[in-house]
Simulated assay, not measured.
Amino acid sequence: MPVYNAGPWLDECLQAIVDQDFAGSMELSVFDDASTDDSRKVVEGWVEKLKTRGISVVISGHNSVQPRGVGFAKNKAVSQSCGRHLCFQDAVSMCVFEHNKVSNSLIGCRVKRLPEESTERYTRWINTITQDQLMTQVYTSHGPTVVMPTWFCSRQWFLKVGPFDEGGKGVPEDLLFFYQSLRHGGGVSRVNQCLLIYRYHEKAATHSISEETIWKQRVDFLQERVLGVWEDFTIWNAGKQGRKLYRCLSPVNQKKVKAFCDVDERKIKKRFYTFEESKEKPKPKIPILHYKHASAPFIICVKLDMTGGVMEENLNSLLLKEGTDYYHFS
């Protein structure tokens, strides 16, 4: 458990750890990343209660003026621990530990979000995507298809994939680790029980990461894993997001875009999107088609769950297979 100025939430978090009904041996490894509040004192105050419950405790930290970041703190917490399996716990969340036989997988769970009305679309997505979509929807803006708190994996797998990136503030260390796990052939699974109370708050480290940073990582991973294999493809969305994706592609992958498709007649009537920023002469002109007249494979640049089901119905009407004929990107 990495900790940085988490004092207001630690009692609930640590009580949840005490309340685990897992009967095997457990260890809590805490690394305090230069907190300036009473976080360290709060954790130390729980040591005896945790030990009484049969949970051994390791606590360390550093006294630098500046924190080193979530990735650094997670790596330190892992390195000072000794378990064969790792279960990552955020200091502001409350989880239920469930042991699974794992080898090369990251295992997550369904979650309850606090406050309940926060991030409704995101919470619905992580709780309802299918097992297959845990692998096919890794390119969306939502990030890892199982949330970091709590990932469960073997130490052996962590050491093969990791460590976490220690670039500090503004680095999406969980997303980068997730991608690396997939690159190494790792799987993704979800326990279909709600085992985590996942708190949303404005000071969370995730808010320090810019959308552009995430966007670049997603585009690069999409090009690496999907577009590099396809001979050509259609971008589903002739609007802002679709055009932005096109402009961010490598020159090789831009040439693979055979069309944009949409349902907006105003965009379709334009017939072409001209890439004005291109240095080519003449400038590339990409056809804009109605989706019924476009051909797979598609990269879908329309956000899920934002059109009242219309986009999803249109896509389903084409009888295509996700992960083969199309991938969601937005």
Rank of each mutant, 00 (worst) to 15 (best):
Q223V: 06
Q223C: 03
Q223G: 01
Q223E: 10
E224L: 10
E224K: 13
E224V: 07
R225A: 05
V226T: 02
L227G: 00
L227H: 04
L227I: 07
L227R: 06
G228E: 09
G228R: 09
G228C: 06
G228I: 10
G228Q: 09
V229Q: 15
W230Y: 12
D232L: 11
D232I: 09
D232C: 13
F233H: 04
F233M: 08
F233S: 05
T234G: 09
T234E: 00
T234D: 04
T234I: 00
T234H: 03
I235Q: 02
I235N: 04
W236D: 04
W236L: 10
W236V: 04
W236N: 04
N237G: 14
N237L: 07
A238Y: 07
G239T: 08
G239W: 07
G239S: 10
G239R: 09
G239D: 13
G239Q: 11
K240N: 15
K240L: 14
K240F: 14
Q241P: 06
Q241I: 13
Q241S: 14
Q241W: 14
Q241F: 12
Q241C: 12
G242M: 02
G242L: 06
G242K: 00
R243A: 13
K244E: 11
K244W: 07
K244P: 13
K244C: 15
K244M: 13
K244Q: 13
L245S: 05
L245I: 00
Y246E: 00
Y246S: 00
Y246C: 00
R247A: 11
R247L: 12
C248Y: 11
C248I: 11
L249Q: 05
L249S: 03
L249R: 06
L249H: 00
L249G: 06
S250W: 08
S250E: 03
S250I: 10
P251K: 03
P251W: 02
V252W: 09
V252T: 13
V252E: 11
V252G: 13
